[in-house]
């Protein structure tokens, strides 16, 4: 005689349909999660690159630029300050003006690149004040405005992605609850026979909880794997685009990404189990 059959019939067509629905929802949820995390990572990457970087444009001769560099270097919190020569200034303009270079007679501002230590604050304002005291006509840019804008924009994108994850999770739970209810109606005869044979509510509910937990975990894992494949593909395509990858959202498949992918099947399984439990116990409460 074969091993004991499960008290609930093995998967039927509706279970397979539900598997695909949960799989698709988990794929979208995991991808949204990865997108949200990558938006934050991109913001960090962008702001890390400009944090502490101070650019001083000096309108005047080389001597003014040298004095400005010395003043900047003497300011508290500044680690380095260096006047860029004309070739370095031309290099900065090359992406906009092309390989032909800058015409020799084009006047370029004198640029001083300074770097403040990470913990220092108000360094830009202090340099600006000292330059003004020395009557040097210069503009100090510590990129704070740009950095704040980037952080705000990526923060908003991250929140939208998180809201998407929440919406998808809620949709998944609603779909699972609906599907469990339908599955229960289709198997009401089994539930009734078990009930009348003396099965406790927890015993009957447990059968459905285990079934839907496994279905949720398997479908969630499949969706997460697909999301991993999609993310890896996007990462591969992004890397093909050149050395300015730091401009793109960071799909590095880091530990945080791994956690998102690992949690997806767990959350799907637990949501399916909870939905099954609530639905079954509510239906059982209608029986004597």
């Amino acid at each position: 005689m074969s091993a004991a059959s499960p008290l609930l019939p093995r998967e039927d067509a509706s279970d397979i349909a539900l598997f695909f629905v949960i799989c698709a929802l988990c794929f979208l949820a995991a991808l949204s999660g990865l997108a949200a995390r990558s938006a934050y990572a991109a913001a960090d990457s962008w702001t890390d690159r400009v944090t502490g970087q101070i650019t001083i444009r000096v309108r005047g001769d080389d001597a003014s630029a040298a004095r400005a560099a010395a003043i900047a270097l003497a300011s508290p919190g500044v680690r380095t300050a260096r006047a860029l020569d004309r070739r370095e200034a031309e290099d900065l303009l090359r992406p906009w003006l092309g390989a032909a270079g800058v015409p020799a007679d084009l006047p370029l501002p004198h640029l001083i690149a300074a770097e403040a230590s990470g913990a220092a604050t108000g360094v830009g304002e202090e340099i600006d004040r000292r330059l003004a005291e020395e009557n040097i006509d210069a503009t100090v840019d510590d990129h704070a405005l740009w950095s704040r804008d980037v952080e705000r924009a990526t923060g908003s994108a991250g929140l939208v992605a998180l809201a998407g994850v929440g919406l998808l999770a809620a949709t998944a739970i609603a779909v699972i609850a609906f599907a469990t209810h339908a599955a229960l109606l289709a198997r009401r005869d089994i539930v009734e026979v078990l009930h009348l044979t003396g099965a406790r509510d927890a015993f009957i509910s447990g059968l459905f909880e285990r079934r839907f937990l496994m279905l949720g975990v398997n479908a969630g894992a499949s969706g997460a794997l697909l999301a991993f494949a999609a993310a890896a593909f996007i990462l591969f395509m992004a890397k093909q685009s050149g050395d300015r990858i730091w401009l793109l959202p960071q799909l590095s498949l880091s530990l945080a990404d791994g956690m998102i992918l690992g949690l997806t099947p767990l959350v799907a399984g637990l949501a399916a189990m909870a939905a099954a439990r609530l639905t079954v116990l509510r239906s059982l409460s209608e029986m004597v």
Binding site: M1, S2, A4, S5, L7, P9, R10, D189, I190, E192, V193, L194, T197, G198, A199, F203
Partner: peptide, 18 residues
């Protein structure tokens, strides 16, 4: 009211299993 997916033996043993 037998359970269609269970064998005759499993149906008869159901109350003991439950």
């Amino acid at each position: 009211r037998l359970l269609d997916h269970l064998t005759a033996y499993e149906n008869a043993a159901l109350p003991l299993r439950v």
